[in-house]
Design a protein around this nucleic acid. Structure first.
Length: 851
DNA sequence: AACTTTGGCCTCTGCT
DNA sequence: AGCAGAGGCCAA
């Protein structure tokens, strides 16, 4: 710890309270409290209110809230010209300066002055560091207090349904009841006794007296509804509550962030309503309570009111069960401790996490980051390499290699970091030297081939250091995990830590590439991605010299056909032991972490395009697939939340037939895979008949798309005739709904719009309707021709390229100009309709089913 | 109250 | 019919 000296400006400057600072050690193998044990003492939350920090701790089991002055600090180099230092010290906005070794901490009177004057100093050529850091972050970076494990509660409220949700979130609706469920399943409820302000006041007071037993409050969509509503009602009822006492966490945000990539099919992604998620993950049926009738239920009293409360409790308990199933809140807690942030909604954000982690690590190493005031607006940079699939039809025995943690490995291998990046004249000189022959570079520079950038290798960069630290911890917890029985509490905890560190490691590249982050550096980010592209391309080239055929690759993966399992194993080993070490050493890399792994083999694989394929495993990391193995499905409509359910179902059936089951039915032996197009033709005819004449539910045909912007931010063009051009259907519908008045649903940013195609009878004038306007009818021709058949056709065409699929099923709409909409009751089918309509494959298809 | 990245496929819309 | 732009969602 460097010695500090408080330099005060004459006698007039008040002495500055020096915050407790200590060297932080990233916790590794400290003994963990047994799961379920009482939470240890420590820090629970810190927030910034006016010029104070509100610090919430648990001490000897008691919650203690204290305040201290917020510190608006920046750093300058201690060896700065003393005259300039004196000018800073004497500035009226400066409260004091602290000498801390090579750095001098400057304490400003306000953030405003700190920002203005740091920028003024930059203009004068005096660099300042961390001058934009939020005082909470400053405190968290400088303190060594350990985090307490927050006691977790799930919360749900019901408000007066006569007020639109959007307005209720602003506090315009009375709260009728609340439910709090602890992580242990303990349930508590509060019900409004009478429709009076006094009763509501009592209801709120009781809520917060219950919440005293907890530190972290989790609610579904809490940030947009429950939390602001409660806060606003407390304000109106004069209930004084310090909200900074708790960590407020939006379960939905957390779920979306963590579950992306984990979802198996589009069913889990179509709606974010708790009921839909619970149905998909917990197999929970729909509650029959109508949430738009909360007021009526409450007002009716008696049994009806009890039903309302039961509904509220049940929803809240769903959150607890969701957490039991996913462990996402627990994972966030681990991640938060790792990154030195708090497990609230803000702490979900990777930028926040990376900032917490890197600032702390920097402080430990006596490294300070340059102040960064204006962010955003960075120019785009080149990303990953994606190969066009080089195969058609069904391809067999494809081996997949992938680079383990590619971007973190690159960062370490090349020692890539903003401060190791060579810039200016040195860069230009090195470029010239390199053009003449790279030998002199090997001593203290690494070279990034495609971007032509150099990185110093004589001192470890802060970014590689952070990555190494995280990967070391990940390995520690992976090893720890292996010591315990799978699924046991210790195994779960170790697994969670390992996952948290993996997430942290992968987020470093993201924050380097984000213009919104203080660590943004375009050249570094691009060098990371381009070294990845270089590695994969060099590997393909080397493989092809060994008679392997690269059929596909994306970012960090390589799909190889035309060789045996053993040949591929040998190739991977050669890459790791000979090829990469030699190549990377030639580029000046000192610490080679690049490793290709033989991940899996597909018994068969079918590509429809880049990023879209289905495959049946032979093995995964050496473990043979069995009847419980599901096929791999990437990118298809089956995986998308914005496809219609029918499209997902038809695709699922086709996948099952092609790959021998695994989606809708159990996996069968590979010999059960269907390779006769006629089977698919029959199946398609069945689906087509069903869609054109069978019974269709809203759930079969509804499309759900998110509004990613505020309604007025969507571009709206004029047609040549001056009239407004149509926007995309979901935007158009959302705007109409919004303009219709506040009775409508919430159409704010992030909302999902559910709609279906009602009538596409007249060309160019398709009528879409919102799900609420479903009357049992839709345009069945459109449902088949536009929404169901094309996704399936792409898959069939990929598997059987020689069959004329579009001709067989592409067009069903009658030529005559009539209304396309079909009545909900199907016309009686002609007797023996199926054989008559059955299509037969013509002779040209017979020899074409195999590749 | 704050924004991880790029690459890629696909749909809808209006225009030539 | 093909193009271009906006937009959404997914792969990595």
């Amino acid at each position: 710890m460097p010695r500090r000296r408080l330099v005060r400006r004459q006698q007039t400057k008040p002495q500055v309270q020096a915050p407790a600072r200590a060297v932080h050690r990233v916790s590794t193998n400290q003994p963990e409290p047994a799961p379920g044990a009482p939470s240890a003492d420590g820090l629970l939350n810190v927030s910034w209110q006016r010029d104070n920090l509100v610090i919430v701790e648990r001490l000897a089991g008691q919650i203690v809230v204290r305040e201290r002055r917020a510190e608006y600090a920046c750093f300058i180099r201690s060896d700065l010209d003393p005259a300039k230092k004196r000018i800073i010290r004497d500035h009226p906005a400066v409260l004091g300066m602290l000498e801390e070794g090579v750095w001098t901490r400057v304490l400003w009177r306000s953030t405003r002055e700190r920002e203005d004057l740091c920028q003024a100093l930059h203009r004068d050529g005096i660099m300042t560091y961390e001058g934009d850091v939020n005082p909470v972050r400053r405190f968290m970076t400088d303190t060594s207090m350990v985090h307490a494990t927050p006691r977790l509660a799930f919360l749900d409220i019901e408000t007066d349904s006569r007020v639109a949700p959007r307005l209720a979130a602003e506090g315009n609706a009375r709260i009728l009841c609340w439910a709090v469920v602890g992580a242990d399943g303990r349930k508590r409820v509060g019900v409004l006794e009478a429709n009076t302000d006094q009763a509501e006041r009592a209801l709120l007071q009781r809520l917060f007296s219950i919440l005293e037993d907890y530190d972290q409050v989790v609610a579904w969509n809490g940030d947009k509804f429950d939390f602001p509503a409660i806060q606003a009602r407390c304000g109106r009822r004069g209930v004084k509550v310090n909200f900074a006492r708790w960590l407020w966490l939006d379960h939905m945000d957390l779920f979306v962030r963590m579950n992306t990539g984990a979802a198996e099919s589009g069913d889990e992604k179509q709606f974010l309503a708790l009921q839909a998620i619970a149905t998909a993950l917990l197999g929970e049926g729909k509650d029959n309570f109508d949430a738009s009738q909360t007021w009526q239920a409450w007002a009716a009293g008696g049994v009806e009111r009890q039903r309302l409360v039961r509904y509220c409790v049940k929803d809240t308990d769903l959150l607890r069960r969701l957490e039991e199933k996913t462990g996402y809140v627990g994972l966030l807690q681990t991640l938060a401790e790792t990154c030195n942030v708090f497990a609230d909604s803000r702490g979900i954000n990777p930028t926040i996490q990376a900032e917490g982690f890197l600032l702390k690590l920097g402080a430990e190493r006596d490294y300070r980051f340059p102040s960064s005031f204006q962010r955003g607006g960075g120019t785009k940079f080149k990303g990953a390499y994606v190969m066009e699939p080089q195969c058609h039809g069904i391809t067999r025995n494809v081996h997949v290699g992938d680079f383990a943690s590619l971007y973190p490995s690159i960062i370490v291998t090349w020692n890539m970091s903003p401060e190791t990046l060579v810039v200016g004249q040195e860069h230009d000189d090195l470029t010239v030297v390199h053009a003449q022959g790279a030998a002199p570079l090997e001593d203290c520079y690494s070279y990034s081939p495609i971007t032509g950038r150099f990185f110093r290798t004589d001192q470890e960069g802060i970014l590689p250091h952070a990555v190494k630290e995280v990967l070391r911890l990940r390995k520690f917890w992976n090893d720890e995990k292996a010591k315990h029985p799978p699924g046991s509490p210790k195994w779960v905890e170790a697994n969670r830590k390992s996952t948290a560190y993996k997430i942290a490691a992968n987020s470093f590249y993201g924050v380097i590439g984000s213009p919104m982050s203080r660590f943004f550096n375009r050249e570094v980010a691009e060098s990371v991605t381009q070294c990845g592209a270089w590695l994969i391309q060099e590997t393909i080239r080397a493989g092809e010299q060994r008679s392997m055929v690269a059929i596909y690759g994306d970012t960090d993966s390589l799909f190889i056909a035309g060789c045996t399992r053993t040949q591929f194993e040998v190739f991977v080993q050669w890459c790791n032991e000979d090829f990469y070490p030699v190549q990377l050493a030639a580029l000046g890399c000192k610490d080679n972490r690049i490793k290709l792994a033989y991940e899996k083999e597909f018994e068969r694989i079918i590509f429809t395009s880049a990023k879209r394929y289905i495959g049946r495993y032979v093995h995964y990391k050496g473990t043979m697939a069995d009847e419980s193995s599901k096929p791999e499905i990437k990118g298809l409509e089956f995986k998308r939340g914005d496809s219609i359910r029918l499209a997902r179902q038809v695709q699922a059936e086709v996948v099952d037939l092609l790959l021998g089951g695994g989606v809708l039915r159990p996996t069968l032996p590979a010999s059960e895979c269907v390779e006769d197009p006629q089977v698919f033709i029959d199946a398609m005819q069945r689906w087509q008949d069903h869609i054109l004449a069978g019974e269709l539910q809203l759930e079969d045909v509804v499309i759900s798309k998110r509004l990613n912007k505020k309604l007025h931010e969507y571009s709206r063009k004029r047609k040549k005739d001056g009239a407004w051009a149509k926007q995309l259907p979901h935007i158009e519908l959302a705007r109409k709904l919004h303009e219709a008045g506040e009775a409508g649903e919430d159409m704010s940013e992030g909302a999902k719009v559910s709609y279906f195609v009602f009538d596409a009878g007249t060309k160019g004038d398709v009528e879409y309707r919102t799900a609420a306007d479903w009357d049992g009818t839709c345009d069945r021709f459109e449902v088949w021709e536009k929404l169901t058949w094309p996704p399936t056709e792409r898959l069939l065409a990929a598997a059987f390229p020689t069959v004329a699929w579009p001709k067989l099923f592409g067009s069903v709409r009658p030529k005559a100009p009539r209304r396309g909409r079909v009545a909900p009751t199907p016309p009686p089918p002609p007797p023996q309709a199926a054989p008559v309509r059955r299509r037969r494959l013509k002779a040209h298809g017979t020899q074409a089913f195999t590749t």
